[in-house]
Amino acid sequence: MLKVQRLTKTYATAAGPLTVLNEVSFELGRGASLAIVGPSGSGKTTLLGLCAGLDRPSTGDVVLAGESIGEMSEDARARVRNAHVGFVFQNFQLVPTLTALENVLVPVELRGEGGPAAEAEAEALLGRVGLGERTDHYPIQLSGGEQQRVALARAFMNRPKILFCDEPTGNLDGATAQAMVELIFGLNHERGTTLVLVTHDPELARKCGRILRFKSGAVVADELTG
């Protein structure tokens, strides 16, 4: 599902080139789950962004759902994201001007596939994450945990082949975070989605089938959790 080959990302800075990711390679099969862990500044989020096609690598390539996205244009990568990828962000990133239902509908409406059937599915997803009564609420009217659940429903709306989560529980309290984790893994199993998540939380990381440990832009350990 995801194949990362000798991935390197370098930024030009005043002090010279800065390599934040150095020759990273790994593969992930369909339905697998991977946690990327490491200290701040180790390159976790950069790797996630490159894997999800949010940025272009300096060298190396990413093959996502069978498509090599390293050399693709931004719009072509956007099409791949829309077709195969779901996202859950640390700070939720809901569109503040859309209701919960409308936020969930965005990925399918972008494809021009909106309509009563899509709405019914979005409502069902919101019901699945426990927000069936809050479909008309705007993000500002929802708590952090509720917003993250809407984000999760949105992530699954386009039936993604792979779900990327960036610190999905980083802004949530313990109990809410626990509920969120259960939802993520529950939906992941139900739909057979591949899961890639970045986290600082060792508990959360251990729930994944595999853990990549990062330091200074390089993989220092690749562990299977069994």
Binding site: L54, R81, N82, V106, L110
Partner: peptide, 16 residues
């Protein structure tokens, strides 16, 4: 800008 970035993440093209 953040809203636009989220739309891009969700697959909206630059033109859209």
């Amino acid at each position: 800008i953040t809203t636009v970035a989220v739309l891009r993440c969700l697959g909206a093209s630059a033109w859209q």
